[in-house]
Measured scan of single mutants.
Amino acid sequence: RELRDAFREFDTNGDGRISVGELRAALKALLGERLSQREVDEILQDVDLNGDGLVDFEEFVRMMS
């Protein structure tokens, strides 16, 4: 339940997936600093298991585990 709530916080447009822009904004909020595009792309590449360029809830749960 906590992970579902956190996912909703990251998924600002409510489409059920976290985009690169949403991921960048969430990481900035969490870390208090802006990451480079390359750093965000590397994180997305590690987390995006199905290669669609987005983070779905299952991928998010794995990222947070």
Rank of each mutant, 00 (worst) to 15 (best):
E33V: 07
L49F: 06
A25M: 12
Q37D: 03
F7N: 00
D11P: 00
G16V: 00
V55K: 01
R8I: 07
G51C: 09
G32Q: 03
S19T: 15
L27M: 11
G32E: 02
D5G: 04
E9W: 03
V20H: 10
L44D: 09
L23S: 05
V40I: 13
I18F: 01
L27Y: 07
G32S: 02
Q37K: 12
F7D: 00
F60Q: 00
G51K: 12
R8D: 13
I18M: 14
L30K: 15
L27F: 14
I43S: 14
S19K: 02
I43N: 13
R17V: 07
R34M: 05
R17F: 11
R62S: 09
I18C: 04
R8Q: 08
E58W: 03
L3N: 03
D15G: 08
A29S: 11
N50K: 12
K28N: 07
E33C: 12
G51W: 04
L44K: 13
E22K: 03
N13G: 01
N13V: 01
F57L: 10
G16P: 00
V47C: 05
R38E: 05
G53H: 12
D52E: 13
A6K: 15
F10R: 08
D11L: 00
L35F: 05
E58A: 09
D52M: 06
E58C: 01
A26I: 00
F10E: 02
E42I: 06
N13I: 00
V47Y: 11
L3V: 07
E33G: 12
V61N: 15
R17H: 11
L27Q: 09
E9L: 06
D56A: 12
R4S: 04
Q45T: 12
D48Q: 15
G21K: 06
A25C: 15
E2H: 09
E9D: 12
E33I: 09
Q37V: 11
I18T: 01
L31C: 10
E9A: 06
D41E: 09
I43Q: 14
V20P: 15
V40N: 02
L30N: 15
L54K: 05
Q37E: 13
K28G: 09
G53D: 09
T12C: 07
G32T: 02
F7W: 07
L23Q: 02
D11V: 00
V61Y: 11
L27P: 02
T12E: 09
A25P: 11
E33P: 11
S36A: 13
L35W: 13
N50M: 00
R38W: 08
A29V: 04
G51M: 13
R1N: 14
E33W: 15
E42D: 06
N50I: 02
N13C: 02
V55M: 03
V55P: 00
D46E: 07
G32N: 05
F10C: 07
R4D: 10
F7M: 03
G14L: 05
V55Y: 13
L23V: 08
V20E: 14
L3A: 04
L35Q: 13
R1A: 08
G51S: 15
A6S: 11
L27V: 14
R17A: 12
L27N: 14
F10W: 09
A26G: 13
R8L: 08
D52K: 09
G32L: 01
I43T: 14
R8M: 10
R38M: 08
L23G: 06
E42T: 03
D52N: 11
R8S: 12
Q45P: 07
L23R: 01
N50R: 11
D56E: 15
L31K: 15
E42A: 06
G53M: 07
Q45L: 12
F7L: 02
D5W: 02
N13R: 02
V20F: 12
R62N: 08
R8E: 11
E9Q: 10
G51F: 04
I18G: 00
I43H: 15
D15Y: 10
L23K: 01
E59H: 06
G51I: 07
S19F: 02
D46I: 03
I18W: 01
V47Q: 12
L27T: 14
G14M: 04
L23F: 05
G32W: 04
R34K: 15
G53N: 09
E59N: 04
I43V: 12
N13S: 01
E22Y: 00
G32Y: 04
E33D: 14
S36L: 12
M63C: 10
G51H: 09
R4C: 05
Q37W: 10
D56T: 12
I18E: 00
L30Q: 12
M63N: 13
D52A: 12
L35D: 14
R8W: 04
F10Q: 15
E59L: 14
K28S: 11
M64Y: 15
Q37T: 12
L35C: 08
R4L: 02
D56I: 08
D48R: 15
L31D: 06
E59I: 10
A29Q: 10
D41Y: 13
L54V: 05
E42C: 09
D48S: 15
E42K: 06
D5C: 06
I43C: 11
T12M: 03
N50D: 15
